[in-house]
Design a protein around this nucleic acid. Structure first.
Lengths: 128, 128
DNA sequence: TGCATTTTACGAATCGTTTCGTAGACAAAG
DNA sequence: CTTTGTCTACGAAACGATTCGTAAAATGCA
């Protein structure tokens, strides 16, 4: 499965958040979150291309087609994360983590969850 | 200061890693880490454009010009990280951190450093 | 001096992505 | 039945980024 472009990713975000949707729904969601107005047929075309690539499926049984994400959000995030770590943190995930935490927008509970995550990783290491 | 494109970022990586460099040095470094052969004049052109934008400075006192990154690595990382968190993790930095840790390529020391980071963040919260 | 090499400069071609205009099918409402 | 609006399909324009060919200047060497 090919990687989504930036525009495709924006559409996938909508589909992930709201589930299977029509072009109109997606287009309105995109325009809700951006100053720049995106034309309806632009969104349509992009979603058609995504269907060709297999990034989304579409139900054409009704006149108004319904699209659904085919690429799972987690998988996309893992792929993009790997590339991002490579290209902007020279492959060091922990450097990225430190920088991300440094931005300071993680809540107390989130910090706690991250600590739990680290704990479980360290436990796992014990057993190797 | 404008954001670097992907190609520009690859060049900045070299400059950050090895300090001020000539076009040839950068071009060879790029080609060392990629199957796809990048032509010399391609790298040259890109670096000239970067100089125009102010992403790099250049010393033209000698015939062979020497380029230096103007955008600090940390700043670039912060900017790109913010955008990345928005576009692929819906703005949730901690989601990204969890996913990054889950990849499991952080060493024991790195985990320890991350724990320290969290500790210091939590201490700071106490005082607010 | 003359030849080969290396460099900068720069216009233009190419390429992938995004955007849009237009046409035709269909549906709903009067 | 006709009008109006919404939908898909699709070609092509527009755009930004990258790549390259070529020329001219400088350098080094035989």
């Amino acid at each position: 499965m090919q990687q989504p472009t930036e525009g495709e990713l924006a559409i996938l975000q909508v589909l992930w958040a709201t589930g299977p949707s029509t072009v109109r729904t997606v287009n309105e969601a995109l325009n809700a979150r951006s100053k720049r107005e995106i034309g309806y047929t632009t969104t349509l075309k992009l979603m058609q291309l995504m269907a060709d690539k297999g990034l989304v499926s579409r139900d054409t049984s009704k006149r108004t087609h319904v699209y659904a994400a085919q690429l799972p959000e987690e998988k996309a995030q893992r792929n993009l994360l790997r590339k991002f770590v490579d290209t902007t943190f020279g492959g060091s995930a922990s450097q990225l983590v430190l920088r991300a935490l440094g931005e300071g927008d993680a809540s107390a509970e989130e910090l706690a969850e991250i600590k739990r995550m680290i704990q479980s990783l360290e436990n796992k290491r014990q057993h190797d």
